[in-house]
């Protein structure tokens, strides 16, 4: 369960505090419910994901994570460019407290990413596709209750895309998702509920279709 309670967020700019991106956002995500965040560009979707993931803190209000929540899975996680893929994967395993079965997890990521001997090479030799393969494999290695996903499914070449999509579906059966995507079909496939972000407020819909409909109604005809 994730409780978002009266969350306000704005960012500091060089010219003082910026506009309020989120202004009094309240909702509770029950266990085993996958949610899609919907809203126009700049509505605060990524901001809200960062707050839920604990990367950033709200200016006011609080976010309570009563489940295991992943880091926001975007395109490039914190890879140290001088270190090899293996070393970077090990780092993430360690900070998540999986020192005991680290070998097992590293092998899993290696098998999934399918980048061959490059796994033992420094990250700065990787292509962007290889990086996202590794990142995607890494995000699947841990068992979270909630996966925070910021447009993850759209990475890699055609072969990998198929594999990633299958893995993602598998994941969605086991765990819940909190995701941002501009692909309507993706949202409908993975999410049951929807949150529509509009003018700094969040509106909860038990059915993703209603959320999409509410969003579309505000679009200029």
């Amino acid at each position: 369960m994730i409780i978002v309670d009266d969350v306000h967020k704005r960012y500091m700019t060089d010219r003082g505090p910026g506009r309020w991106v989120l202004q009094g956002v309240n909702f509770v995500i029950p266990p085993k419910v996958s949610v899609g965040l919907i809203g126009g560009n700049g509505a605060g979707k990524s901001t809200l994901l960062r707050l839920i993931g604990g990367v950033d803190q709200p200016n006011r209000g609080k976010v309570e994570r009563l489940s295991r929540v992943s880091w926001p899975m975007g395109l490039t996680p914190g890879f140290q460019p001088f270190l090899t893929g293996r070393q970077n994967v090990k780092f993430v395993c360690r900070i998540h407290g999986h020192e005991d079965h680290i070998e097992e997890l590293v092998e899993f990521v290696k098998d999934f990413a399918e980048i061959g001997s490059s796994f033992e090479e420094p990250i700065n030799t990787y292509s962007s596709g290889m990086k996202s393969r590794l990142a995607f494999g890494l995000s699947l290695a841990f068992d979270f209750d909630f996966y925070i996903s910021d447009e993850v499914t759209s990475t890699g070449d055609a072969a990998f895309k198929q594999k990633a999509s299958n893995a993602f579906k598998n994941l969605a059966n086991r765990s819940s998702m909190i995701m941002v995507s501009h692909g309507e079909s993706v949202l409908k496939e993975f999410c049951t509920a929807g949150i529509w972000l509009y003018q700094g407020k969040a509106h909860w819909f038990d059915d993703i279709d209603d959320a999409l409909k509410a969003y579309k109604d505000t679009l200029p005809k």
Binding site: K90, R94, I95, E99, E104, L140, A141, D143
Partner: peptide, 23 residues
């Protein structure tokens, strides 16, 4: 993939220590 069904949240100190070690 591993299953941790009997998962207990780690204490703040345990998290910090594992972060220090990894870093």
């Amino acid at each position: 993939m591993t299953d941790y069904s009997n998962h207990q949240p780690r204490s703040s100190w345990a998290i910090t220590l594992s972060v220090w070690k990894a870093l």
